[in-house]
Design a protein around this nucleic acid. Structure first.
Lengths: 236, 236
DNA sequence: CGGATTGTTGAGGATACTCAAGTTAGGTGG
DNA sequence: CCACCTAACTTGAGTATCCTCAACAATCCG
């Protein structure tokens, strides 16, 4: 028999604000907690969507594979984020693959509780619209970037977002808190590993970043922002 | 004194399915109806977001202007769509401009009713998450297209989407039901007017479409799909 | 230590952009 | 109803960005 999950796991998360303690308990009742080691997939593209999730600790990378086999990184999931709610997209399979980039824990609910929970807790439903709305705006920002910015600026924005969402203070600057390859950055910014490598090397020479194998430290966020916003000539 | 709005205006819309008649009446109470002539803006980017809307008739084009003055078409709003719900994005201004491309009518609610309505009608909240979720998926599709497809395929997909959402049967094929310029298509697909012109001209020569000034008829949707999915060599 | 994964760098070339110079269509006012 | 004006569109030529390909270097891991 499982120990009941404690409401303190979720009570501080934006998705659950405004909900009373006993409501949290009822929401948690059908939930189970899951663990993934780095490299494990929580779910894979095309698989029937049987559960939805809230990330507690760790970091996930959601990718999609196109018909031609190209990989696109759709989003990075950070602690507190709701994910895998295929029901909200009117789907019964997962549109992408969610893979842990570091060891990760999450809460999982059977998908049939999606409607019930939102109907029973209207504040949760309100919070969910907001959570999805924020992601929609993120997506629009990316669309706008792809539509109007050249490679170097897109990479600058992607790196700054990573620093904001998953940055950790380090002596040299802001360190991205999980292993990230040039290929990852390339498939977030619609370019190639080669170009990302060239861009980051140029930035490294200028002292803006410190790059290594699967690691990245932002040393001069302000100048990166200038490049991202087109106020400074790029270094390519 | 205004005549009350009739529930039949909205009872068939997906956003309001599952709601009882008297709930619809209560939802409509704070609503007013608005009209816009072609070319009028329902709201403009940066303006304080005082109202949210549901489109009844007509068609809107939502654009954003970047810092450098480039215009991006974020989406086309079709009848039945919810729009302008800045509250769901945690904003108090509109992130884009919604302009009528044909004469248009819509329902408008004061923004302060957003939370109240969703909390009072949990089915509405559920439907709203789904509406926003569908748009999120649309946005992801666009991101994936920008990231992996070349211009001609992006244009093919954009044209097919227009045909699906705003197509009207015509003797020669599926006519896009509102005036749309090459520049519009360019800012939906992240390219230039010049390139769109070349692409559509080539398609016209091959009999796939019939283009005119601000008008577009899809004659061979199947071959366009083949081009969009990369199964057929493009015509450029 | 060897194999695999990840990253670097150069050279060449394709896609699609920019710029320029037109043409066509629509609306407007005389 | 025609002349004009503007906005939309077309087409060509030149070119920049960034992709592709190839060869190699570095790092990790068992």
């Amino acid at each position: 028999m499982l120990a009941a999950l404690d409401r303190s796991l979720i009570s501080e998360l934006p998705l659950f604000t405004g909900l009373a303690g006993n409501a949290l308990d009822r929401i948690l009742e059908p939930a189970t907690s899951i663990r993934c080691a780095a490299g494990d997939a929580v779910f894979e593209q095309g698989e029937p969507a049987t559960r939805f999730f809230v990330l507690l600790h760790g970091r996930l990378r959601v990718t999609q594979i196109t018909g031609e086999g190209q990989q696109v990184v759709v989003r990075i999931i950070n602690p507190g984020d709701l994910f895998g709610m295929a029901k909200a997209l009117n789907r019964d399979d997962y549109p992408g693959t969610a893979m842990a980039v570091v060891d990760t824990t999450a809460l999982a609910w059977p998908m049939e509780f999606w409607d019930d929970l939102l109907l029973a807790h209207s504040r949760l439903a309100l919070n969910a619209t907001q959570a999805i709305g924020l992601r929609l705006e993120d997506a629009h920002v990316r669309v706008r970037e792809f539509a109007t910015e050249e490679v170097e600026r897109r990479v600058a924005h992607a790196v700054l977002r990573l620093a904001a969402q998953a940055g950790r203070a380090a002596p040299e600057g802001i360190r991205i808190d999980f292993p990230i390859s040039k290929q990852d950055i390339a498939s977030m910014t619609a370019t190639t590993m080669y170009t990302v490598s060239r861009v980051l090397s140029a930035w490294q020479r200028a002292g803006l970043v410190d790059v290594g194998r699967q690691q990245l430290v932002v040393c001069d966020a302000h100048r990166l922002m200038m490049i991202g916003d087109g106020h400074e000539r790029g270094l390519l």
